[in-house]
Design a protein around this nucleic acid. Structure first.
Lengths: 332, 332
DNA sequence: ATCAGTAATGCTCAAAAAGAGCATATCCTG
DNA sequence: CAGGATATGCTCTTTTTGAGCATTACTGAT
């Protein structure tokens, strides 16, 4: 490349530490979980992660190794999520402003079928909604959400009038405070609003400040560093993805009933689905076939057991449970 | 973190070089362009890029600096595209297998309004479709696509029967060789199929081999390293994004006619749109308003001049030209 | 001045998809 | 056998999409 060096940085090129971080998701009995590990210093909970080392042939391979080493969980489906190089995209500055050796972390989303093998002692499954109580709308609006809305509105009062309006608009957009409907995919944006308003502990601890008294539900379980942000990114991505790619099946056991499939979809999206329409959708997509067996432990009429159809490629056209993406519009 | 080191890599953590690469897109007169720079060693064309250095406060800031230094083009809208750490996600191994100091590159997509200032001498605007002739379907199927399909089918004959079937299925999915319709968003997958079939020069030059004789149109303009793959990633992302976010406006001048807007949408998506439906869509979204002026140089009836509505947040609900994404399905 | 050419605009219609419910079928429990 | 709890099948209405036909308003050429 023959180009002038960037004006502000005369130093020679530098090398940085690269961390690989995994958002591993599984669903069990209608509840979504993240795979987490317990850390010692400081004591806490974190997503599985580790530095990229030369021994790793690819980034994904490195990720798999770290996760397996730390949790004994073997990953199936993996996709890249985002590369974090500065702490907050919206409000703040650098992840490590003073440090010459900054670190960037490349986050991945992985899906596994729950009944996996036994985990490493230090590994745990942590419920999504213990970290994000306001994101579970399956039984209507959770109490946590109402409280959050109030506090976010309060916060807007502390803003200079110039910024207040755009902030309120963001609030309406993400938290459905106005006429706009709740959009379950905006998990990350909602988290960032909380962070910006100083309503989550990380907003303080990230900078070494002590966190003030915050409602416990909003605190959630504290995750190391910016791992809650990364987890939120994973939720947003996954909620969007199930609408147009059949990734749901990565989370299911080999055989399942349509109700179980629906429960899984609801667990991830955090909202309740219309049963009959859900079935119509699944059948129309032709993604599953009957195994012949039936499940009699349903409590009611027995359900047919289904399996994912072999010949359906994961990258198929509109497979998923296109719960929002439709056909091709405008474009003729 | 208190975890065992990954089994295969005993070495201490290592630091790697991080490159920032920009896919800068602009549209002029209904043609989409990438911003490129001419390189000296070796002589060729590349996307603007440079290493991350400590002086950069954030990754995006670093990217902006490099692009401005190399091209004098100031970036507006930016979003992260993908982080490449191994050359080919599907088929191959590492980007730099032997080198202890591997490099990863973080690619960004940026949108600018074309009539920008004068560019740096070494900077150019390179047409999308000179790099990807088969991606332009605005006037029906380009000749290049037919040839490509033939060659891809030929290639399938060289595969062992075991892999042939899944390969043919991928072919049908991405190149619409069967009943499935052309999906303009699969640009990256199409490129990867070409790469895997050795139909693109990079598949050889990446490994230091001389490229065999390939049809010139498929070769396209050779871009440095894996920049054509990165560019393809940018096209895929942008083609998907315009369907649900109003990013199109980042590419438009302050005032424009609906026809110009449509031409821009068509340029990016590479397919022709139904004019009346396109208007209906834009109006339904309430994204634009009349400026009062009219354009009389249309050749026919003069067109009203429009502008993007100020109060529409970029992250608005379903703004874009949801040319395929619809309402919220299944999920009740 | 009129006619022809070329777009921009306005509307209509039919097909497909999405949202909601009603009605039935089956199995389990008491 | 009645009651409870689901699984399944179908219907009906409202929207959204896909395609065209018809009209309007300028420019240029006869």
């Amino acid at each position: 490349m023959a180009a002038a060096p960037p004006p502000s940085s005369v130093e020679a090129e530098s090398r940085v530490r690269v961390d690989l971080t995994a958002v591993v998701v599984a669903v069990d009995a209608g509840e979504p979980y993240f795979l987490t590990v317990n850390t010692e210093t400081p004591p806490g909970v974190a997503l599985p992660s580790g530095p990229l080392v030369p021994g790793h042939h690819t980034l994904q391979a490195g990720l798999r190794e770290w996760v397996e080493a730390q949790t004994k969980c073997r990953l199936g489906y993996i996709e890249q999520l985002y590369t974090f190089g500065d702490r907050i995209a919206i409000l703040t500055v650098d992840r490590d402003p003073a440090d010459e050796h900054r670190a960037i972390s490349i986050a991945y989303l992985a899906l596994v079928s729950m009944p996996a093998e036994r985990l490493e002692a230090q590994a745990r499954w942590t419920s999504w909604y213990s970290l994000f109580p306001w994101e579970d709308q399956r039984n209507g609006e959770p109490e946590a959400l109402r409280r959050l809305r109030r506090q976010l509105l309060d916060h807007s009062q502390t803003l200079p009038p110039a910024r207040r309006n755009s902030w309120l608009e963001r609030l309406e957009l993400t938290y459905a405070t106005g006429r706009l409907p709740w959009d379950e995919e905006r998990t990350l944006e909602r988290y960032e609003l909380l962070y910006g308003a100083g309503l989550v502990a990380e907003a303080y601890t990230d900078r070494g400040k002590p966190a003030p008294d915050l409602p416990p539900l909003i605190h959630g379980v504290p995750l190391a560093a910016d791992h809650r942000r990364i987890a939120a990114t994973g939720i947003s991505r996954l909620r969007a993805k199930i609408k147009y790619r059949p990734v749901l099946f990565e989370l299911m056991p080999p055989e399942f009933t349509l109700s179980q499939l629906q429960k899984t979809a609801e667990a991830l999206s955090g909202i309740a689905l219309h049963k009959q329409n859900f079935r119509r959708l699944v059948e129309a997509q032709n993604l599953v076939e009957e195994t012949g067996g039936i499940a009699t432990d349903t409590g009611g009429r027995p359900a047919k057991l289904m399996r994912f159809r072999e010949d359906v490629l994961l990258e198929r056209p509109s497979p998923g449970l296109r719960v929002g993406a439709g056909r091709r519009m405008g474009l003729a």
